[in-house]
Structures are given as structure tokens and as C-alpha cells.
Amino acid sequence: MKDYYEGESAVFPLFLVTSSDGAAWSRAMAWLFPTLLLQALLIVSFLHLIWDWFQKQSFNKQMFVLVWMRTVLGGLAAISPSVGSLEGMVFMISEVTLSIHMYVLFEIFLQSIVQAGIFLWLAKRFLILQRK
């Protein structure tokens, strides 16, 4: 996706902070980790509400729920006009084509699979250690 961020035909610098703006990029990178921690806490707070049900589900159903939360609710159905969301497909400038939206949505999907796998591995490990 480098071509969307850098170069003459880059689209994302029109509405996103990119590495081409040093000061803004430094500020964004300083806030990235705390923001990701907050995002994780918000997701876990929801899982806490359904934890008893969630634990009883098979690994495949657990993966489905987590991937659905990130890809569909956090990406496609997000309540913001962002790349990869339905609102973004309506409100973003024409340079952000449908193929860019689909590419970003696919990236969100792949990231959600990795995040779900890590979460389930850590949750299983924590529950095993908790029982000992």
C-alpha cells in the first residue's frame, strides 16, 4: 500500500497523517501505542460482558466472533467515513476508489485474524495458569 501513502499519486496524505509530515507523524507515533491499548481495553470490556458464553464456544466460533468484531463492526460498519467503511465508500473523495476500500478492508481482516489468534492464545494460557 506504499503507493497510496507516498509519491505523486498518493491519496492518503490528502486526509491522513503520513510519514511525509515529520512533526505530525512523530505525534501520531507517540500516541499510537496508548491508543492501541485503549482499543484493546474497549474490546476486552465487551468480551467481559459475554465471557461466560464466549468461553463455552468452540475455537472456530470464538475466532468468528473476534474477527467479526474487528472486520465488520470495526471496519466495514464503522460509524465514520474512513477507508474501508461503508460510510467512507459514500463520503470519501473519488481518488479513494472502491478497490482501495476493499484492499484496506482485506488488510483489516488479516490483522483481525492475527489479533484474534494472539488473544485466544493468551486467554487460553491465562486460564490454564489460573487453574493451577
Rank of each mutant, 00 (worst) to 15 (best):
Q57V: 06
V83H: 00
L41G: 15
F109Y: 14
L37V: 15
V65N: 10
L37T: 08
V11W: 00
A24Y: 07
I118W: 02
T18W: 02
L73I: 13
W25S: 10
L73W: 13
R27L: 13
E95C: 01
L105T: 02
S85Y: 03
L38P: 05
R27T: 13
F54G: 03
S94L: 04
E95D: 13
E95L: 05
G22A: 10
W68G: 00
F119H: 02
R125I: 05
L37Y: 07
M63K: 03
T71I: 02
K2T: 10
V90P: 02
A116T: 01
P13V: 03
V90L: 14
W53S: 10
L49R: 12
I128W: 06
L14D: 14
S9N: 15
D3P: 06
L110P: 01
P81I: 00
F109G: 04
S112C: 03
A77L: 15
L32S: 12
L38R: 08
F91N: 12
A77I: 06
K56L: 12
M63Y: 05
T97N: 05
R125W: 15
S112Y: 01
S82E: 12
L47V: 04
G7F: 04
M29P: 00
L110E: 06
H48M: 09
D3C: 04
G84R: 02
S80I: 07
E6M: 09
W121H: 09
S26G: 08
H101L: 03
A23W: 14
L36S: 06
G7L: 08
A30W: 07
L32K: 09
A40M: 14
G74E: 07
P34N: 01
V96Y: 02
V83S: 00
F64A: 13
L122W: 05
I108D: 01
A78K: 13
L86W: 07
S19I: 07
M63F: 07
Q39K: 11
W51L: 06
P13E: 01
